[in-house]
Amino acid sequence: MLERSLEVLIFIAAVGCGLVAGVFFAFSSFVMPALGRIPAPSGISAMQSISVVVINPSFMTAFMGTGALCLVLLAGAWMWWGDLSGKLLLAGCLIYLVACIGVTMVFNVPLNDTLATMQADTAEAASFWSRYLTEWTAWNHVRTVAPALSLALFVLALIRRAAV
């Protein structure tokens, strides 16, 4: 029973990782480049709006809910520690928690918070916007790869368990 519950939770975490990776991939591949192509005040205003609207139940459930599942799954990694699947599970959880949630909180959110304090049509905002686009997007690339890698590790852990 516990084994099956753990497998279901890993599957749900893998789906959550896929959703989060997809959102971040969209930002890295076309949202941020598009915002960078329009006049700075328009890009700044759009990003300020995105930063407010992203705090919604659907995204936060996928993003933070997957993080909460990873915390629970750390115990599952301990349960399976004698098998490679436990180590894969641990790696997937830690990568998501550190390189997805941690990077968001330490790098992307502070940049968003600074941008939120600015008037979009000022020289100060335009100067910051140039730096923001580069730094925010670079950290977003990390946030894109992390949940995709966690997804792959979770799937590998499930495949490995099925083979045991």
Score class of each variant (00 low, 15 high):
133 L>G: 04
9 L>N: 07
123 A>E: 14
31 V>C: 04
134 T>M: 13
59 F>P: 07
9 L>D: 00
2 L>E: 14
89 L>W: 07
24 F>D: 12
88 L>W: 13
111 L>P: 01
37 R>P: 01
88 L>K: 09
97 L>E: 06
7 E>Q: 15
158 L>K: 08
40 A>Y: 10
94 L>T: 05
61 T>G: 11
137 T>S: 12
76 G>T: 06
4 R>M: 09
63 F>N: 06
89 L>G: 09
79 M>D: 14
17 C>H: 02
92 G>F: 02
152 A>D: 00
86 G>P: 09
99 A>S: 12
39 P>A: 10
46 A>I: 11
17 C>S: 13
133 L>N: 07
131 R>F: 13
135 E>M: 12
75 A>L: 14
102 G>W: 02
136 W>R: 00
40 A>L: 03
129 W>D: 06
46 A>Y: 04
163 A>R: 15
39 P>N: 10
131 R>H: 13
60 M>T: 05
98 V>P: 09
138 A>Q: 12
24 F>A: 12
149 L>H: 01
140 N>T: 05
95 I>Q: 02
114 T>V: 14
158 L>D: 01
115 L>Q: 07
90 L>N: 00
98 V>N: 03
6 L>D: 09
87 K>T: 14
64 M>T: 12
39 P>T: 08
57 P>G: 05
47 M>C: 04
28 S>H: 10
67 G>L: 01
141 H>K: 02
118 M>I: 05
34 A>T: 15
112 N>K: 05
125 A>E: 05
156 L>N: 06
163 A>H: 13
100 C>R: 01
137 T>D: 12
77 A>Q: 04
41 P>I: 10
161 R>E: 07
69 L>G: 11
7 E>V: 11
30 F>Q: 07
81 W>M: 12
87 K>N: 08
151 L>K: 00
149 L>Q: 01
60 M>E: 03
81 W>L: 11
75 A>K: 08
82 G>Q: 13
112 N>H: 11
153 L>T: 10
78 W>V: 15
144 T>C: 09
155 V>D: 00
150 S>F: 03
41 P>C: 10
71 L>Y: 07
27 F>D: 09
